[in-house]
Structures are given as structure tokens and as C-alpha cells.
Design a protein around this nucleic acid. Structure first.
Length: 548
RNA sequence: GCACCCGUAGCUCAACUGGAUAGAGCAUUUGACUACGGAUCAAAAGGUUUGGGGUUCGAAUCCCUACGGGUGCACCA
């Protein structure tokens, strides 16, 4: 944000030396204060294009700088051609004013103004409870939706599911087996690939309450009914868990609708006409190899006449493209990686602009407890569910742990750390800032020290104060960068740095008990810190407690 | 075997997407206000960024290669 005040002056300088709009003008905040408050490598990036030495270009730029406001102390060339800028305190004070004006909107940008985005996440079929992998999916997806919203997009949060097909039939058969076992035939065989979780027994119990214990054979009718109550049970469990995680999705897209409204038939027909599909061995194949040599042809309609998952996947994505979103985001686990090239190639062959499609792949979660990995086996049904995890450590910690690492790295979820309510837990470090400030404000009020927004900010000159302001000034860049890169972890990292800057400031600089002017100025600084932490946590879907 | 992701301090991870002396947290060691919440702060120590080549002013980042880990490669989803 500080660069917003500086950049125009540099732009003018670049124009005057005829080096404007050749490469983007980027400012960095140097790690070392010896390198100034802000720096730019513009002279170095220009060097190649202008075929001149970076240092010479830097000197020309500096000579052409004209600062009208009294915000810059000095400008120097350093290293291989960096231009380092030393700001006056007034620059920092302008930052405070600006953040205060934006308040709870500070961090929002107009990057995606007038554009729409669709973020699809969770998308678990109603065959069971959500597990930890879904949790990571949910946290990443919901946070990216938040980030895009903060970047100005109109966002649709979508859930895609399939309540038909083999998986659901297996669910019905599993329920029937448990039903018989509960109704006096404990030796009734359980399907080989059935769903083993205990929840199936709960559903069977419900079936007994609804239909009695009389059914002996898995007729089509009874399986249909069991499938229905199984679906309802699972969906209500999924929604309940998501709600606990503070996740609400706008659209629930049923795969079935693609068959009912003819989308699938139309697609099949079109593929045939365009030569993108062919019949072989009684099945219909997609001619992927024709559009991309690195791909292999795949069956899209089986011999049995049933489609494979690829066909509705393509149809569904086409449907999303037809809904005219500017960005379409999928959040997928690493196990779905194979479908992406196929779906993308198919859409491209159908003339859609696949640059709009962003598929975010996250790696798997491993759960650790007491230094040992907790095995999560779907078959045995002994998986630790997302619901249990939320009950144990709360939604804030669950959400934070799932986004605090980059999506492409395998996540080690350490239950012991998640459970600890102490300094080892990174979530408290952030929330503590908020609680601390709230507490301080109420203490100040007891001493009749009321926040005065017109306080003289020029009393803020201590290093810890300037470091904190610098951190706060970076929030907008961070939200933008995180939205652009679709990496929630950037926000987590940003908040940690900012929290650290605040705690240092709070330790070094007393607020209550100092001279009135200084107290007021520092209260203002604390207040905007509270705003930034609150906004940042809100993006992550995490609460900002006033007490802990 | 082929494709994709990853390999950074003892452990878990960053690094503004090619920038200055690779940084945090935990663990270890040492210190801190009779005052605003010690769920805090300050400091020490810890590295040939898996190995080897290459690209350029400059590489953890890009390319090639070897090794190690994960995931996928169905007429399952």
C-alpha cells in the first residue's frame, strides 16, 4: 500500500526517460532496513531491454524523480542496481489514515470487479460422512471463495454430487445387510465392497423404525427406499458437518439433472458429429488422442449403455462454462488428477476458453497422534471423521490447520498440537492479538482514555511502530496475491508476520500510562491492527475472539 | 514402465513466483516489565536448499539428469 503513494512518481520518471511500460514496475519491502523501506528492481529488469547497465538506468530514474508530498527522506542505488527508498514518518501516517478509512473493507480490492467466479468444492457423494480429506477440500475451497469475493468477484459456491449409480446401490445393499443383521439374522452376509462404517447401522436402525423389521429379500423396491433414506441421512450429516465448519454453499448441482434435461444426449450427439467420439467393442470412446497425442482414448459409454464418470464430468464442466463465469475453480484431491487433462482437452475441442478453468489439486492429509500416524482406512470404516475432529478442536483450528500449508504439499495434521491450547498452537497466536487489543481498549476506557481518531500520529516513530505499520500496509497486497495465486496459505503467513509485529510493538511500546498524545496515537495503531487481524481471520473463516 | 506433485535447519513449513546475507514455528540453550493478558517478548545455536550438470548480471525457484517420497494410469467415481 505504501507503494501506491510512491509508484506514480516513479511512473512519471520512467516516462521522462522513455522507459515507460516496458516492464512492470514492482516494489518490494526489503527484509533489511538497511535496504530502505521500499525498493524496486526496475533498473535491473529494464537493463536487458535497454541494453544498458542497471546502475546507469537507476541513476537516470533517480535524477528524474520529483516528490511533491513530503514523504520520502532519500533514494539510493545499491547492490546490482536496486533503488532503495527511505520514507519519512508521514508516509507511514498516511497508511494509518487510509486503513482507518477503509475499516472492515480494508483488504478488499476491485481486481475482479464486474466478474463472476464459480468455486466448486467438497462435492462428496452422499454415501457416508465427511473425512479429513474433505475437510481440507472444504477449507481450501471456502477460503478461495472468500478470497475471490474480497478481490471483487461475484462468487457462486457450488457442490456437485451424484445420488445415482453404483456407489449408491452399494450403499443400499450395505444398509440392507445391516438391517437384516439387526433384525435377527446376525450371520446375514455383508457385501464385499460395502460401506463398513458404523453409521450404516444407524441408518438401518432408522429403516426399521420407518418400515418395520419384516423385509427378508433385497427387492428393488426395498433397495430403492433404503437408498433414499441412506442418501437423506448422509446428506444431512454432511451439511451438518459443513455448517459446523461455517461453510454454506449456494448451489447443489445434481449429476442426475444432466441426464434429465438432455445435456448428456446433446453432448454425445455433438461429439459424434464432430468426430470426437467413435464406437468400438460395443462401447463409445472419446477420441482424446486425436486432439492431444499425449492422451489416450477413454470409454465414455460402456457396453452396458451406462456412461463412465468422464462423460458427466465433461457435461458438467460444459454446463459451468455455459453459465458464463469468468473463472471456474475446481478443488480436487490428488487422486482425481487424471481427469483434468481429459476434461480440459474435451472442453477445448468444444471451443471453450479453458484458460478460465483453474483446477486446484491438494495433496493428501496424514493424521498424527502421539508421534504415530493414525491410519485412516475407508474399508474398515475406522476413519476419523471430520465431524469428530471439529467436535474435538473446534472449527477455527480445523480450518486454519487445513490451509496453513500450501495445497501442493502433503499435510501432516498433528492432533496433539491441534488440541493444545497454548503457544504451540499457531491459531491462538493470531487470535491473541485481537483479544489483547480488545482487552487493552477496555482497560483504557476504565482509565478514561477514550480512542481519539484525530490523534497526532507523528508521535509514532519507534522502530517497532514503523515495522507494525509496514506489516499492516501489506495486507491489501497479500489478499490480492492470495486471490490471484489461489493460495490461502499466503494469508496465514501474512497474519503470522503481522501478529508478530504487533506483539513486539506491544512489548516495546506502552500504550496506557504514557503521555496523552502518545497513548492516543498508539491506540489508533492498535485499533487498525485489530481491524487487519479481524479482516484476515474473516477471510480464513476464523473467529476473532474478544476474550480467550 | 509412463504422467503429475514434492524433496529447504533435528521436526513441521515459508521465501512476494528469477533478486540483496535462504526465513518462521516447534524442539534445544540463555535472558525479560511490582505496569496495558507471560497464550507474550529478546537472543544464541542450527544450511553445500537431496546429488550432479546447464541457462544469466543473479537460481531454492527455470531446463536436463540421477536418487528418494506421494498420487494417478478401469467399460470404479
Amino acid at each position: 500500500m505504501m507503494h501506491v503513494l510512491i509508484a506514480p512518481v516513479f511512473e512519471k520518471a520512467l516516462i521522462s526517460i522513455h522507459a515507460h511500460n516496458i516492464v512492470p514496475l514492482v516494489f518490494d519491502i526489503p527484509k533489511l532496513i538497511e535496504h530502505g523501506h521500499l525498493s524496486t528492481n526496475i533498473a535491473m529488469t529494464l537493463a536487458r531491454h535497454l541494453k544498458r547497465k542497471p546502475a546507469d538506468i537507476a541513476q537516470d530514474i533517480i535524477n528524474a524523480l520529483v516528490f511533491e508530498d513530503d514523504i520520502v527522506e532519500s533514494v539510493h542505488i545499491a547492490g546490482a542496481g536496486f533503488i532503495n527508498i527511505y520514507a519519512k514518518p508521514t508516509l507511514f501516517h498516511k497508511v494509518i489514515e487510509s486503513i482507518r478509512l477503509k475499516g472492515s473493507d480494508y483488504g478488499r480490492t476491485e481486481y475482479g470487479k464486474g466478474k463472476s467466479a464459480n468455486v466448486e468444492y467438497v462435492s462428496a457423494n452422499p454415501t457416508g460422512k465427511l473425512h479429513l480429506g474433505h475437510g481440507r477440500n472444504a477449507a481450501i475451497g471456502d477460503t478461495i471463495a472468500n478470497l475471490l469475493e474480497w478481490a471483487g468477484y461475484k462468487v457462486t459456491r457450488e457442490y456437485y454430487f451424484n445420488n445415482a449409480g453404483n456407489q449408491m446401490n452399494m450403499l443400499a445393499k450395505s444398509i440392507f445387510a445391516r438391517y437384516r443383521q439387526l433384525c435377527g439374522t446376525p450371520e446375514y452376509p455383508f457385501p464385499e465392497d460395502g460401506y463398513h462404517g458404523d453409521y450404516i447401522k444407524d441408518i438401518a436402525q432408522k429403516a426399521i423404525e420407518l418400515y418395520g423389521a419384516e423385509y427378508r429379500d433385497p427387492t428393488e423396491e426395498i433397495l430403492f427406499s433404503l437408498r433414499k433414506i441412506g442418501e437423506e441421512w448422509c446428506f444431512s450429516s454432511i451439511l451438518h458437518t459443513l455448517k459446523k465448519m461455517k461453510i454454506h454453499q449456494d448451489t447443489f448441482f445434481n449429476e442426475d439433472s444432466l441426464y434429465h434435461d438432455g445435456t448428456i444426449d446433446i453432448l454425445l450427439n455433438e461429439l459424434k458429429i464432430k468426430g470426437l467420439s467413435y464406437d468400438k467393442d460395443g462401447a463409445t470412446w472419446f477420441n482424446f488422442s486425436r486432439i492431444d497425442e499425449s492422451l489416450t482414448d477413454r470409454v465414455i459409454v460402456k457396453q452396458t449403455g451406462e456412461p463412465t464418470y468422464r462423460l458427466p464430468d465433461i457435461a458438467y464442466h460444459r454446463n459451468k462454462f455455459e453459465r458464463n463465469y469468468d473463472i471456474i475453480v475446481d478443488i480436487f484431491g490428488a487422486d482425481h488428477i487424471a481427469t483434468i487433462p481429459d476434461v480440459t482437452a474435451a472442453l477445448k475441442a468444444l471451443d471453450y476458453d479453458t484458460k478460465k478453468l483453474k483446477v486446484l489439486i491438494y495433496q493428501f492429509v496424514t493424521l498424527w497422534e502421539n508421534g504415530e500416524q493414525v491410519k485412516m482406512s475407508k474399508r474398515s470404516g475406522k476413519s476419523y471423521t471430520l465431524d469428530e475432529l471439529i467436535d474435538e478442536v473446534g472449527p477455527d483450528i480445523v480450518r486454519f490447520f487445513f490451509i496453513m500449508r500450501g495445497a501442493q504439499t502433503q499435510l501432516e495434521f498433528d492432533l496433539n498440537i491441534a488440541r493444545e491450547q497454548n503457544d504451540k498452537n499457531p491459531v491462538y497466536y493470531l487470535q491473541y492479538v485481537h483479544a489483547r487489543i480488545c482487552s487493552m481498549i477496555s482497560n483504557a476506557a476504565d482509565k478514561e482514555l477514550i480512542p481519539n481518531l484525530d490523534a497526532q500520529l507523528h508521535f509514532l516513530t519507534a522502530p517497532a511502530e514503523l515495522t507494525l505499520i509496514t506489516a499492516l500496509s501489506r495486507f491489501e497486497e497479500s489478499t490480492l496475491k492470495a486471490a490471484h495465486a489461489m493460495e490461502p496459505q499466503i494469508i496465514a503467513e501474512y497474519l503470522r508476520e503481522t501478529a508478530s509485529a504487533f506483539h513486539s510493538f506491544y512489548h516495546d511500546c506502552r500504550i496506557i500510562g504514557e503521555e496523552q498524545n502518545i497513548s492516543q496515537a498508539r491506540i489508533n495503531l492498535a485499533l487498525i491492527t485489530k481491524t487487519v487481524i479481524h479482516n484476515g481471520l474473516a477471510i480464513l473463516g476464523i473467529s476473532s475472539p474478544e476474550k480467550m
